[in-house]
């Protein structure tokens, strides 16, 4: 029992709990993002409500955690790395909550796609996009779980794939305008835009972790 007595053991526990809860929330959001991708690419209309329903606990958890971070800021007077982490945590919470909302928004577009003729090129691009953004988001959650500053530093480059695929998707949709109809076009634009936004949130989360760890925000427009 050397060093039997950390001076702020209880406070350290609280910070650990916040980090663990962030990872858990991120995992819940990530799971819903993947599910939204499946719903969109396989047209599983019957699972739309499940994805929407799964966002409720995410929101509840978000508010709960936000309050906890707020309370710790008020009561424990964090400084230095603790302060950076908690400030980053409030931003990460916001990014995660928004990402969860975007997954909900994505599945809501699925009904508009009902009855649209199958197009392999479009399905392939949506699949690639959903996969890429989900991976980006997973990576961000990993950065939180391991407090890995490197992930945030490389995040902009990593995110380029999503941007490229989104551009390809928009081009393909425009070309097939007449075949699939205006409503499906709008739906697909939204879906593309939302997945891309999710990946952006993932980038931001990883960058907030970089800030929490190093005290510096990664270069880029962050």
């Amino acid at each position: 029992m050397e060093s039997a007595f950390d001076t702020r053991h209880h406070y350290d526990d609280e910070l650990d709990d916040i980090r663990a809860a962030l990872v858990e929330l991120g995992s819940m959001v990530a799971a819903n993002i993947r599910r939204a991708g499946v719903v969109v690419t396989e047209g599983r209309l019957n699972e739309v409500d499940a994805v929407i329903g799964a966002d409720r606990p995410i929101n509840a958890r978000y508010h709960d955690l936000e309050e906890k971070v707020f309370t710790i800021l008020a009561l424990q007077q964090p400084v230095a790395s603790d302060l950076r982490f908690l400030v980053a945590a409030t931003r990460i919470l916001y990014e995660m909550e928004r990402s969860g909302d975007l997954a909900v928004n994505i599945v809501k577009q699925v009904r508009r796609l009902d009855g649209v003729p199958t197009d392999l090129r479009l399905d392939g691009l949506v699949l690639r996009l959903s996969d890429a953004s989900a991976r980006m988001f997973d990576h961000a959650v990993e950065a939180v779980a391991t407090m890995n500053a490197a992930i945030g530093i490389g995040a902009e480059q990593e995110d380029e794939e999503t941007d490229t695929v989104t551009g390809d998707l928009f081009t393909a949709v425009t070309e097939r305008q007449d075949a699939i109809g205006l409503e499906a076009c709008v739906a697909l634009f939204y879906i593309g835009r939302f997945f891309e936004r999710i990946a952006d949130h993932g980038v931001n989360i990883a960058q907030h972790i970089t800030f929490a760890v190093t005290g510096e925000f990664p270069d880029g427009d962050g």
Binding site: D17, I18, A20, A21, V23, E24, G26, S27, M28, A30, A31, N32, I52, A54, D55, R56, P57, I58, N59, A60, R61, H63, L65, K68, E97, D101, V104, D138, V141, E142, A145
Partner: peptide, 26 residues
């Protein structure tokens, strides 16, 4: 989506993630 819904879900496990081992914060 009502994002100011404070009610807790019946079971969190329903929405539980597969990605990371988690523990609920005390």
């Amino acid at each position: 989506v009502d994002s100011v819904d404070h009610t807790r879900p019946e079971t969190l496990e329903d929405a539980s993630p597969s990605l990371a081992a988690t523990r609920s914060p005390r």
